[in-house]
Design a protein around this nucleic acid. Sequence first.
DNA 1: TCTGGGGTCCTAGGACCC
DNA 2: TCTGGGGTCCTAGGACCC
Length: 356
Amino acid sequence: MGPSPTWVLHVDLDQFVAAVEVLRHPELAGKPVVVGGRGDPTERGVVSTASYEARAFGVHSGLPLRVAARKLPDAVFLAVDAPAYEAASEQVMAALRSLGVVVEVLGWDEAFLGVTTDEPEAVALRAQEVVLRETQLHCSVGIGDNKVRAKIATDLGKPAGVFRLTAENWFEVLGHRPTRELWGVGSKVSGRLTALGITTVRELADADPAVLVAEFGPKMGLWYHGLGQGLGPATVDDTPWVPRGHSRETTFQQNLTTQHEVREALRTLTHDVLEDVAQDGRPVVRVALKVRYAPFVTRSMARKLQEPTNEPATVIEAVLALADSLEDREIRLLGVRAEMSMPDDPTERTPVRGRI
DNA sequence: TCTGGGGTCCTAGGACCC
DNA sequence: TCTGGGGTCCTAGGACCC
């Protein structure tokens, strides 16, 4: 008998936000529940999470609340309550850590587990059991020989299931599926791949790397090529995440029209960002401004500060200076971001998007 | 019908230097 | 009159994820 193999498990809570709401409002069980914005479907805003009952009517995350209300006028609309989901998330992660495995948190409702075992399915079932016992929430578990395969496997196991995806069954399961189903391939990239004559995962795997590099650049071209084969990092790392920066953005229910309104909104946003900056403790090295004038018309601006600073007045000044170059048009959205100095950290980062 | 808010990372291209 | 080649730093913008 050799040593046991190492596995990556990906745990994903089922309809997490809606499930947390149903837990605190048991009378909502079995009803279509839509969580988004301030819970008012006549306002500007989008759906954060829809319960399975609501999804059956075509209501899904990202859908404008007004559209959701037309499709499903009788749904229960609830406001997003981030602190409640954070608290539930803490419980979930604590339950997973109690298994004595390495837990890499990906977001409110997701984590990778690093496990050395001969029976990964048994660990997956134990993870589902302990999460259900401790939080009354259901989850799906993907088992893989790396993070990419584990992550994709989870979707194949939903809801409340377990699915194993490795080099052995990768092409059998995914070879004929569209590239869009790969983690990190969105609508734009899948569209560009289609233009190259690549539509399926198998075709991406078999594509000429030089062609992908020419289209997407040296890094992403090779990354996408590997993605077609299900290649990706396999190390699960539980060291705490270090944020690169802090930001706030707001969509206004009524567009801003005057300079005065814009400057006041920027002061408020910057003030909120500065609270996170103060908590963080590290100095600000760069400020960025995002503005949306109309749907689809977004501009961004950024400025490196002369020197890193912890001084709020300096940060506000830099943000307002950026705002001087705004066009004189109605504004729907403003965002302010402060980026922090990162410690010199030569650790290689994998080109997977998100907190990997 | 009219698109949130919090993030991360990559690339292109200009400026500048040797 | 024509304009190398390598490198770094910076900003704008794009794409993706939860």
